[in-house]
Design a protein around this nucleic acid. Structure first.
Length: 479
RNA sequence: CCGGGUGUUGCGCAGUUGGUAGCGCGCUUGCUUUGGGAGCAAGAGGCCGAGCGUUCGAGUCGCUCCACUCGGACCA
């Protein structure tokens, strides 16, 4: 049709250039804009509304398990940051430093927090006295700065918004349980709020967080087959407690070091949603986090009664507790359809003169494009049903894709060959040696994503060195 | 940090052998329209990424930055 010519907001096809498709969605769905400092992003109202929904749902989950929110300072004195060697080595190269206050040079430079373990430890050193005060289950929502070399909206920006949970416990077992509990909290959140299946597991030593004793992760597969680390949970043992001299008086009246965890998830989750559900018409949002869950479009809205009919539908949907918008602007229908598809609104309700005659409306699904003619009396019921169906379909489709693009191998060459054909997840056994992990990167171009909790026995030996295998590892190309 | 690409109005682009900047969309106003990115008309909008150089003259040629972008390496 000749009408195609006006598609000024059309985006690059996913199949043509996945990275460009991703960037197009970020900009054209009005999620972000670039800031004037390289690598920093402006999260625009629509993007921020998605983040707010993520925050609200996740924060509610944290509170169910007794976590409380706090706010820590943004700046960390260099001497404080450097008390724990491994963390410094991990983060110092990517710290932004404040060297001046007003016109005066500071005695000691201050790091803009890249993560806040050190701040929490410093605080706990002051306030912790007795085992009776444990556990301390803290979380904060804030932004952090890491001076990344290559940046992309949501996936890798120099500043990003996140939550960081930090807890200390009386015993190692409690802290380990907390670490695992929070990882499952993330995994469930991804399923229930983002319709995104993940592989939960443990990071190898090579991939674990600087300073952690153990790092757990949830890994998701994007539509291009690449892996996105979507959240992590760390167990620190008492390493930081000792480095920062955090102590308490135990039940036996001795001075003890608490056991610590931290866990985080970031605005990267928005990138994950884009690359898990999006298509060539734009964003596709799972209903729980969609800023607009249903958009009402009055068709031929100048005709008598149409707008009122649309507003009536709007009110009924709102009364259901849904986030609804009625677009009564004078844009054409086609424009509106395309616009809300770009923005990933899960359901579109149309009502026009013909519908009014028949006592019906039209509901269109964003995920499948299917249209339903629905008697007005059944609006609430049908919308509820379809929102549920959209979420389930998004989750099942993503799960199917994850399963169909994960393969077991027992030879390194086969991993390489599969990756060259199409980026995917490769499962192999592994001996546990870092040398073989590095070899896998060199020979097949993949890094270890995790050792899944759900282990399978694919064989007896490591495909790299032929020594006895200890673990099954999922390998992939990481974002 | 290494390599490739791109910077001209809000967005997308054109701009010849160097001669003082144009198109489409969007925007504003009015009218007409409305079941998949509407039509007509009249408007507004530019230090051509920045700096230095070559030249009588630079959007155009040279050098140096900077930004964005893609791919590596590194990382949420």
């Amino acid at each position: 049709m000749a009408k195609q010519k006006k598609q000024v907001k059309a985006i690059t096809a996913m199949s043509e250039d996945f990275a460009q498709w991703y960037t197009d969605i970020c900009l054209k769905a009005e999620l972000v804009d670039y800031a004037s400092v390289k690598g920093f992003m402006i999260v625009r109202p629509y993007g921020y509304a998605i983040w707010e929904n993520i925050v609200n749902i996740m924060d509610g989950e944290f509170k169910k398990t007794g976590h409380v929110n706090v706010a820590m300072p943004m700046l960390i004195p260099e001497s404080l940051l450097k008390k724990e060697g491994e963390l410094v080595n991990g983060f110092a190269p990517e710290c932004a430093w404040v060297t001046h206050g007003g016109e005066g040079k500071l005695e000691e430079r201050l790091a803009v927090r890249p993560t806040s373990e050190t701040l929490f430890c410093d605080h706990w050193e002051h306030i912790l006295h007795s085992w009776r005060e444990l556990p301390m289950l803290y979380n904060q929502w804030c932004s952090v700065v890491r001076w990344e070399k290559t940046t992309r909206p949501f996936l890798r920006s120099r500043e990003f918004w996140w939550q960081e949970g930090h807890t200390i416990h009386e015993t190692a077992a409690e802290a380990e349980a907390e670490t695992e509990q929070q990882l499952w909290c993330y995994a469930n959140f991804c399923r229930d709020a983002l319709a995104m299946p993940v592989i939960p597991g443990r990071k190898t030593d090579k991939e674990k967080f600087a300073g952690a004793e153990a790092t757990y992760t949830i890994e998701a597969m994007m539509k291009d087959g690449k892996a996105l680390q979507s959240a992590t949970s760390h167990y620190f043992g008492d390493k930081f407690s000792r480095a920062y001299n955090v102590t308490f008086t135990g039940r036996d009246n001795t001075q003890q070091y608490p056991f610590q965890t931290s866990w985080g998830s970031t605005t990267r989750l928005i990138g994950a949603v884009i690359m898990t559900h999006g298509d060539d018409n734009g964003l596709v949002l799972p209903p729980p986090i969609a800023p607009i869950q249903v958009v009402v479009i009055p068709v031929a809205q100048h005709k008598p009664g149409v707008l009122d009919a649309a507003y009536a539908l709007n009110d009924r949907l709102k009364a259901m507790g849904l986030r609804v918008k009625t677009d009564d602007s004078d844009q054409s229908n086609g424009w509106k359809y395309a616009e809300y598809e770009m923005k990933g609104v899960p359901l579109r309700v149309e009502i026009g003169p013909k519908d009014m005659e028949k006592g019906q409306c039209v509901i269109a699904r964003r995920d499948t494009g299917e249209k339903y003619f629905v008697p007005l009396a059944e609006l609430e019921e049908k919308v509820q049903e379809l929102l549920k169906a959209v979420h389930e379909n998004l989750y099942e489709s993503a799960k199917k894709r994850l399963e169909e693009n994960t393969f077991a191998f027992d030879k390194v060459e086969d991993v390489k060959e599969a990756m060259e054909k199409h980026t995917c997840f490769a499962k192999t056994m592994w001996c546990g040696n870092e040398a073989c992990e590095i070899a896998m990167k060199e020979l097949a171009g993949v890094s270890s994503r995790c050792m899944p909790f759900e282990q399978e026995n694919l064989g007896e030996v490591c495909p790299v060195c032929g020594q006895p295998a200890k673990k099954m590892v999922v390998w992939g190309v990481a974002y």
